[in-house]
């Protein structure tokens, strides 16, 4: 399968000057979105008044306990989906390897759903406390990635169709399991579960957010050394190993860090579709295909876009809220179609 993006420029060795400036622009974009998302919402409050300390008590609480954690969470989830999408596409040598499409997000949702329905008390009582939900999500996503690894014979170059079929199967299996859990759940559990299937950043608290922040940031740091190896892997597994890439270590690192980032994200915010697919492609179009630009670029662009999508979900039909997963899928799915049209048809 070959996709020709004529505008993509790249430089495998180092991040070029041009790419550094694109990253700088993306960072500014993220800063602007964060400020904008902090300043707007269904509750009327002024960011500047809050910063100056001219706000009422209730405004302070809305800002520090509701809006700020929510903006942070949306940025983190966007960056972990973007980053894992980029890394998984590189690892699978397949431009359709989105954590949602191939079932990794569904696995994470299943892991989280099991905890919510089977032992809701553990969430507050067990010694793991707020870490339990992200950990369950991570176990679910790691299990799916391992399954994919076995089914695709070590992520070999199997073609798009095969990969997508495996993803459909995994999604279906996870869907059945979540359905069963929904069926046996109580009313309260049902409400919590619904929050996964739609995808939302609402209701996050600092207590739930901090473990996810730690996990996602560590996953990003853990993934950092593999950038060049992912470039070399594009030559094929044998070629990469002849160039000194230890394939086992590389796969382990990418799988564990993606599973951690996606698992923690999904556990807190539910399944948010197409971000992991679309963001890396946009990032490639902007600046190039080498991973030492692509992975940080996707993380930053993902964060910026997710913060904007969450803002849209909060203000479009206020005082009600649109599920953010609906917004990303509405934008992402036409893009997915466009991508399929660009894929060289001869390679199926």
């Amino acid at each position: 399968m070959t996709i020709l993006f004529n505008k993509g420029r790249s430089n495998s060795g180092l991040v070029s000057v041009q790419q550094s400036s694109i990253i700088a622009i993306l960072i500014m974009l993220l800063a602007i979105s964060v400020l904008f998302a902090g300043a707007n919402g269904s509750f009327d409050l002024s960011l500047f008044a809050w910063l100056k300390g001219n706000s009422t008590d209730i405004q302070n609480i809305v800002m520090s306990e509701i809006r700020i954690p929510r903006v942070i969470l949306s940025a983190l989830v966007g960056s972990s989906l973007g980053m894992s999408g980029a890394a998984l596409q590189g690892l699978f040598r397949n431009p359709l390897a989105d954590p949602g499409l191939i079932g990794v997000s569904a696995g994470a949702a299943l892991g989280a759903a099991v905890i919510i329905v089977i032992s809701p008390a553990a969430l507050t009582e067990s010694f793991l406390g707020p870490f339990l939900l992200p950990l369950a999500g991570i176990s679910g996503s790691a299990a799916v990635i391992c399954l994919l690894y076995l089914l695709t014979k070590g992520f070999g170059y199997q073609g798009v169709t095969y990969m997508l079929l495996v993803g459909i199967a995994v999604n279906a299996i996870a869907g059945v399991a979540i359905g069963l859990l929904t069926y046996i759940s109580s009313d309260a559990e049902l409400r919590t579960l619904t929050f996964w299937t739609m995808g939302s950043f609402g209701g996050v608290t600092w207590r739930l957010l901090m473990p996810a922040v730690i996990l996602i940031l560590s996953a990003m740091i853990y993934m950092a050394p593999v950038y060049r190896k992912l470039d070399l892997l594009q030559l094929g597994e044998i070629e990469a190993s002849r160039l000194g890439v230890d394939l086992g270590k590389l796969k382990f690192r990418v799988i564990i860090s993606s599973a951690a980032a996606v698992g923690a994200s999904v556990a807190l915010s539910g399944m948010i579709g197409f971000v992991g697919l679309v963001i890396p492609h946009l990032t490639r179009l902007l600046g190039g295909v080498n991973h030492n630009y692509l992975i940080p670029g996707s993380a930053i662009l993902g964060a910026a876009i997710m913060v904007c999508a969450d803002l849209a979900s909060r203000i479009l039909i206020q005082p009600a809220e649109l599920p953010v997963g609906l917004i990303t899928s509405a934008i992402g799915s036409p893009f997915f179609l466009w991508l399929i049209f660009r894929i060289n048809k001869n390679d199926y």
């Binding site: 070959t2 420029r9 790249s10 470039d231 094929g236 295909v289």
Partner: peptide
């Protein structure tokens, strides 16, 4: 170093990238 029949590149690298690998 080994040169053999390599796979097609999925992503759009430049010739310079490939040499520098």
């Amino acid at each position: 170093s080994v040169m053999s029949q390599a796979l097609p590149m999925v992503f759009d690298f430049s010739v310079k990238d490939i040499v520098e690998m």
